[in-house]
Amino acid sequence: MEIPAAIRFDRLGQVFETGSGRVEALRNVSFEVARHEFLAVLGPSGCGKSTLLRMIAGLLEPTSGAVEVFGRRVTGPREDIGIVFQKPTLLPWATIEDNVVFPVRHKRGRVGSHDRDRAQELLRMVGLEGFGKRLPDELSGGMQQRVGIARALHMDPDILLMDEPFSALDALTREEMGFDLLRIFGERPKTVVFITHSVSEAALLADRVLVMTGRPGSVLTELPVPVARPRGRETIKDPAVTELAAHLRDLLLQRDAA
């Protein structure tokens, strides 16, 4: 028996009915993500990248086609998926630790000491040890986004969806966060779908890059990243990475010009 892919899109289409008429967001999208694979999704703005994530999470029903997660069709929200948003969107009234355990409190109504221990461990992992009792607005944007990652990992999901998680950060912090991700997922591999605008980020982090066309979004091409793991700071200078980044940039620029 064949091992099912972690995520499989099958000729998926999405049409939104808006006040100003029908908008076709996605057309005939098919691709797969293997277990513990890191897939980066690149594409121009408005190509429906975020819509893809919402479908995997079961927050949105496709108009046509289907999404499967571990061989089962997605019909509603599922718990084995963590989401990291573009903005950290922490609860401003809750401490960092409470923010990390929030999914547990929100789902079950109470939080055990085991959950707090795990939050501490995750905070250590994202480099925020000792910040547990602080409030979100005492932290910088990059630190807040690390909290967002810790929160997404708290329920130990099999799949992590990241929707341009570093786009609100400055260039330097953004690079730092990329290296941190490499380390984190080196320690505990996850199936990751990572949406980004940054070609170098995609080339650095991903096992495979999915390039999408503009509206209606469809898959332009899929490119493997020919660099072995573990990766680190030096990877960014690896000719294979820079070459791929340049190629991706060309692909996107062509699309924009077309």
């Binding site: 919402r54 999470a57 079961g58 927050l59 509603g76 929200p77 599922r78 718990e79 998926i81 989401i83 948003f85 573009q86 903005k87 969107t89 609860l91 929030f102 999914p103 409190r105 929100h106 789902k107 109504g109």
Partner: peptide, 21 residues
């Protein structure tokens, strides 16, 4: 923030907690 509402939905938490929490 709509993200938190999506987080709540993705957790399949009871609706009243979306209000209270």
């Amino acid at each position: 923030p709509p993200e938190l509402i999506e987080l709540s939905r993705s957790l399949r938490a009871p609706g009243f907690r979306e209000i209270t929490q």
